[in-house]
């Protein structure tokens, strides 16, 4: 991608970032002030409007990273671009994974009485986050560019293998984490909670997509800079 095109793309998505943040703020406003307190959990349940969307974003971006990696392996002509997409997607997966763990822990303290429990959902989410961290370590410590791209793409696929395990862990194993409240039939949540949660999830997905586009440009620019530095050192 030429630098001028990158600059243009960056400026465009940087402008879209502000409306995306605004939509997210509206979603949080609805979650904080429009919805009434939960009869069991009281005010604490409102963290759900942050926790569930960030967890979904983590799943989506880690799965997207694997899809990019597979496309890159299948279509060699776009391998480099797909590797950059994978890199940006895993960056987001890592950040949202960390946020999901942090918000889950904050929610867990008043509801379960502990910050952390070795529950299947929590443990598998931590595993998913650690694999994302390993992806970054791998990229940092593999000097050969082609080897780095190959290894990174494989780790991205391995990280995605874990996503269905995280998602279905509450159904497969006995767990303190609540099962899927909105997906399964006969869920006990009220429709207005479901609606606000949907708004927040869509807003967070939109925001994460805008961040992805900006990060994608940054990844490409970093790689150009790195190649230029290497060229200068060799010269």
């Amino acid at each position: 991608m030429p630098q001028a095109h990158r600059d243009k793309t960056f400026s465009l998505w940087a402008k879209i970032l502000y409306p995306a943040i605004f939509i997210q703020l509206v979603g949080w406003y609805l979650g904080l002030f429009w919805i009434g307190a939960d009869k069991d959990q009281g005010e604490v349940f409102r963290i759900m409007f942050v926790h569930v969307p960030v967890a979904w974003c983590a799943f989506v971006w880690i799965l997207a990273a694997a899809v990019f990696a597979i496309i890159g392996f299948v279509r060699k002509s776009v391998f480099e671009q797909m590797d950059q997409n994978t890199h940006a997607a895993i960056d987001l997966g890592t950040v949202f994974g960390a946020l999901a763990l942090a918000t889950g822990s904050i929610w867990g303290r008043p509801t379960w009485g502990v910050w952390w429990d070795w529950d299947p959902r929590l443990t598998t989410t931590l595993v998913m986050f650690l694999i994302c961290c390993a992806y970054h370590v791998l990229r940092s410590f593999t000097p050969d560019v082609q080897a780095r791209r190959n290894a990174g793409q494989i780790v991205a696929i391995l990280a995605a293998v874990n996503v269905p395990i995280v998602y279905f862990s509450v159904n497969i194993w006995r767990s303190v984490h609540q099962p899927q409240t909105f997906v399964r039939k006969g869920g006990s949540a009220s429709p207005d909670i479901g609606l606000v949660l949907l708004v927040n999830t869509l807003a967070m997905l939109l925001l994460s997509f805008v961040i992805f586009k900006i990060r994608r440009v940054a990844v490409a620019t970093e790689e150009t800079l790195e190649a230029a530095r290497e060229g200068r050192n060799q010269a």
Partner: peptide, 26 residues
Amino acid sequence: LLACVTARSTARDILMPLLFYPLQMS
């Protein structure tokens, strides 16, 4: 799988456990 993935990394001794232990936890 991981031995192949980390073969060309300069931090193989860090990466192998970092990737191996989480993936085989189940």
